[in-house]
């Protein structure tokens, strides 16, 4: 990957909107027994929003790290690794009860870890697979624009 800052942000938001949110809603519905219970589902949605928000804050840091690399690129392996770092940070901060809109109890114990990890896995795997190439099939200019959408 050779993303630019704008490309990182746009691709992140795209994957959030078109893969992350739908999967999260389905996942939330699953845990509410396929009943629309926004009070529960919103925990999943806000959790994903927080990870995305943290990612947006970290994107300039990643871009800085890229400039120290001769190829100014970002290996897929780094993308993989840092995605889980972002998840880990948000999870443990939420578990400590430091995120006001995320209820502390939802992240406690083995069950809290399991629910959140499964949630992120379900969102991350298709997002990451999309990054590996399928996005190029839909957006033929995307790979030349460092991850930005639109015309050249």
């Amino acid at each position: 990957m050779i993303p630019t800052l704008a490309g990182r942000i746009q691709t992140r938001l795209f994957l959030f909107l078109f893969i992350g949110i739908p999967i999260t809603l389905l996942y939330g519905l699953y845990w509410t027994g396929w009943q629309w219970d926004w009070r529960t589902i919103q925990i999943f949605v806000w959790f994903l929003c927080t990870i995305t928000g943290l990612g947006l804050l970290l994107d300039p840091v990643y871009i800085f790290l890229q400039t120290t690399r001769w190829d100014r690129d970002w290996p897929f392996a780094y993308q993989f690794f840092f995605s889980w770092v972002e998840f880990g940070i948000v999870f443990f901060v939420a578990r400590a009860g430091l995120i006001p809109y995320l209820p502390e109890f939802a992240f406690q114990g083995g069950q809290g870890l399991w629910i959140a990890t499964l949630h992120f896995t379900l969102v991350f795997v298709p997002s990451f697979l999309f990054l590996l190439g399928p996005l190029q099939a839909i957006f033929v200019r995307w790979r030349f624009k460092g991850g930005q959408f639109g015309k050249m």
């Binding site: 001769w70 190829d71 100014r72 690129d73 030349f144 460092g146």
Partner: peptide
Amino acid sequence: PKSCWGGDL
């Protein structure tokens, strides 16, 4: 360098 193809360079 790789970023000449589609990155910031």
